[in-house]
């Protein structure tokens, strides 16, 4: 694997994992515009654990995820009191607060960032990405996934059907935080350097866009969305400025052409009837 290809694949893997973290929350109908904050928590947890304690990589990554999950579990209770625009703003605020705390903490390197003294190969990133993808697909295919999608569509009716809406939403938010933490841990270990300025509002916005453009109705959405927006600019080999300009144009166009995302239930149904005529699709 060439160095260039390895680099692209590693970024792709991290972006896909990150996208699933936001997707899990979005699948229950909640928009999280604070992804960067949870990613930063995982990245800094990982940096400290490997620098100060010297835990093996697998444990370090596990703890990044657990910490991300635990913090978002605690945050979920106040945040999920909010609805609609307020939830978007609350999660956005959390990411800004996390970045602010890191910038003010000399222990975390403040504005100069942190160097991590262990590193991982691209393969590790890809293996973790595949595990996250498979687990997400698995979860969405169970009754838990069904209940999540029901809460997304109509909270009140899901409640009357006996779905514990609050447990589903808090669980999804915490799991999303854990996966975001994991992606942050991988980022830290792969690049060997982290700084607060990287985990900014743009990162949160981009990852939410990957998910919304990919589509929140099925587990294919984040995979396609993240791959599309990571690989297309690489394939076009254009400068950063043009890349984001085109990203913007694609977003506006997508919202006009396919406002519910690239992959929708109906589209999947059409494809599967064509591929397996006569077989019923759940």
């Amino acid at each position: 694997m060439s160095g260039y290809l390895a680099g692209v694949l590693a970024i792709l893997g991290i972006n896909i994992i990150f996208a699933y973290s936001i997707y899990i929350t979005a699948a229950t109908g909640q928009l999280n515009l604070g992804g960067a904050g949870f990613q930063a928590i995982g990245a800094y947890a990982c940096a400290i654990l490997s620098n100060e304690i010297g835990l093996p990589i697998s444990l370090t990554l596990m703890f990044s995820a657990i910490l991300g999950g635990a913090i978002s579990f605690l945050i979920a209770f106040p945040v999920l009191r909010t609805k609609g625009v307020y939830m978007v703003l609350a999660t956005f605020a959390i990411a800004e607060i996390v970045a602010g705390i890191i910038l003010n903490s000399s222990y975390l390197g403040g504005p100069t960032g942190m160097i991590i003294n262990t590193y991982i190969e691209t393969e590790v990133v890809l293996i973790v990405a595949i595990i996250v993808i498979l687990l997400s697909f698995y979860m969405m295919s169970t009754r838990i996934g069904l209940a999540m999608r029901a809460v997304h569509d109509d909270e009140a009716v899901a409640d009357l059907m006996g779905v514990n809406k609050r447990a589903i939403q808090v669980g999804a938010f915490a799991l999303g935080g854990a996966i975001a933490g994991l992606s942050g841990g991988l980022y830290a270990l792969y690049f060997g350097f982290i700084e607060a300025q990287y985990f900014n509002a743009n990162i949160s916005i981009f990852v939410l866009l990957y998910v919304l453009i990919g589509g929140t109705q099925t587990a294919w959405g984040p995979l396609l969305g993240a791959s599309f927006f990571t690989l297309i600019p690489e394939a076009l080999r254009i400068g950063d400025d043009w890349r984001f300009f085109i990203f913007g144009v694609i977003i506006v166009a997508m919202m006009i052409l396919r406002p519910e995302g690239i992959v929708t239930r109906d589209a999947l149904d059409r494809v599967s009837t064509r591929l397996f005529p006569g077989k019923s699709n759940v």
Partner: peptide, 22 residues
């Protein structure tokens, strides 16, 4: 419900199976 409250993004079978949730 008086005005139909099915989940718009679930299939027929999934909607019906949601009824079994409890």
């Amino acid at each position: 419900f008086q005005n139909i409250r099915l989940m718009p993004h679930l299939s027929v079978l999934e909607n019906v199976m949601l009824g079994q949730h409890s």
